[in-house]
Design a protein around this nucleic acid. Sequence first.
DNA 1: AAGTAACA
DNA 2: TTGT
Length: 203
Amino acid sequence: MQVQQPLDLRGMKLFRGLIGPEEQRHLVEGLRDVVRAAPLFHPVTSSGKQMSVRMTSAGRFGWVSDRQGYRYSETHPAGIPWPAIPEIALEVWRMVSGTERMPECCLINFYDAGAKMGMHQDRDEADFDQPVVSISLGDEALFRVGNLTRGGRTESVWLSSGDVLVMGAEARLLYHGVDRIKAGSSMLLPRGGRINLTLRVVT
DNA sequence: AAGTAACA
DNA sequence: TTGT
């Protein structure tokens, strides 16, 4: 993997095609092991609505959401500890995060053709000086970036398999979300859909 | 509201 | 239909 000059999206850094096809396949293999140990689940928001993405996590902590609210937990909702973060994901982190610390959570979101993610901030972590690194795999996604508060103008960009987005510094708390998945745009996942990994330092 | 609908 |  060779780091090229990133594109700038309101302070977010977008490394297009950072992860090559062979490494993408390798990473997906690693994720299969994670999902086998910690099955995907449909989270429910604090208002009781089901999210359209299915998710699980790897690392010391996983992100969970239920009637109690959002938080990081050391166990899967089924009570089991989270599996280790795949090595390739850690390599990507070392290349682009710009921090000495290693991620404590790798949130794995699976989007089928109709799944979306509403505009939100990542603010359940203790230290906002630590960046969030997002890895796209599989079908293309229409990603939207907003502002530090809700509302205002937004910008959208299509994210492709192998793209890596770093949300750090002044862009760490920008609202963002996923509006649409382009079904059939990638051959990486045999049954289609998109996987997004977000690596974070939690504590 | 990590959701949804409504409105321009 | 698209953007907020």
